[in-house]
Design a protein around this nucleic acid. Sequence first.
DNA 1: CGCGTTTGACCCGCGC
DNA 2: GCGCGGGTCAAACGCG
Length: 398
Amino acid sequence: MSMPSTFDGDDETQHWPAAGKRSIREVDFFSSERRGWPEDSASAPPKEIPAHEDHKLALLSVGPCEEGDKTIQPSDLHLSNTTMMNWSLKIKLDKLKDENRKLRIMLDWANQSYGALQTQLALLKQEEVLKLENTASSIDDDPRKSLIAHSCKNIRPASLSDPETDRDSIPIDKHEVSVRRPRVSIRARTDAPMISDGCQWRKYGQKLAKGNPCPRAYYRCTMRAGCSVRKQVQRCPRDEAVLVTTYEGSHNHPLPAAAAALATTTSAAAAMLVSSSTTNPSSNLPPPLFTDHQQLGTSILASYSYSSACPTVTLDLSRFPSWNPPNTNCYSMMLPPPPVFNSSSISHDLHDGQFPGHSPSTSSMTEAVKAAIDTDPSLTSAALAMTISSVLKANPSA
DNA sequence: CGCGTTTGACCCGCGC
DNA sequence: GCGCGGGTCAAACGCG
């Protein structure tokens, strides 16, 4: 990708402030900082216009106007002078319009470049995910390699240790046991007891969680023995029409064809969330609450939350109207979109920067979101692909 | 009879 | 140390 020659070399750093300030530069069109135009720049302000004057386009003003150091009174003006002045002002206005147009072009170019970079980032993420999936599937047959891969790729919670493998496992760094594995949570409006995600699940427990009259069901993936993926299904206590499905763990088997085919869509959605959270690195604020995934032809409320030492990426699909997926489930939506950062944990934990293994910094949240996606590509692919795809199919214009 | 679900007991981490 | 609550286990049960 090449830059316009105007921005090459030092000029670029001089006239393009840090990424976080570009919008300010754009808005502050008449700022006095604009003194730094390059001499050879085609978009530089005309030299005959005093630098302080080009802001004062009070063209409709009938009061005294200044030109240089001389104040011209209305009584001094003859018709010819008025004509000359109008003509001069018109030239100035035209030049400013031209300048404005060039700046718009520059801005458009910057926006396009930014969009292209975002797309590239999403694609790179996608490739990375597929690589990790291939690596994981190639070492599944060797428990020891699998264990090593797990220790490198995932951080396993002690509570989710697989007794089948852990019995023979080599002791791993204790730090890993204390940190919880990232989760992916999906909110969907449905009457069905469970969303169809293309995988086979076996229920192994049910429990009444405190503060929620609806029981929480625990499922384990049964597509392959030893698969560590589990999911929790629970109705939202504030709106029982909303089904909250939380996935945790990574599959040790190839995904169902349908889910695998749609994995890229999911990955892209996840990558978009990551990229959206990285666009403002200097901010202390959480990433945007609302991520408009126009490239996917839809709007997905993607968010990140962090509670009980467990980072969670949430995709809120309950905003879609009339979702009727192709399978057995019947989804009927709509309600006011629920708060994304719905728990106090997001404001408390994130602002406190309490992320294990990370120093309290603004990047910890971004890193956590990345970790949630990077460490569990199969999770995001398998668990979300079917769901998101169903939405996209049912709502092509959503 | 095999498989999946139910459900009470148990384990474990965390906060006080 | 204790209590609470989330998560898991496993025996009992139901269904095809």
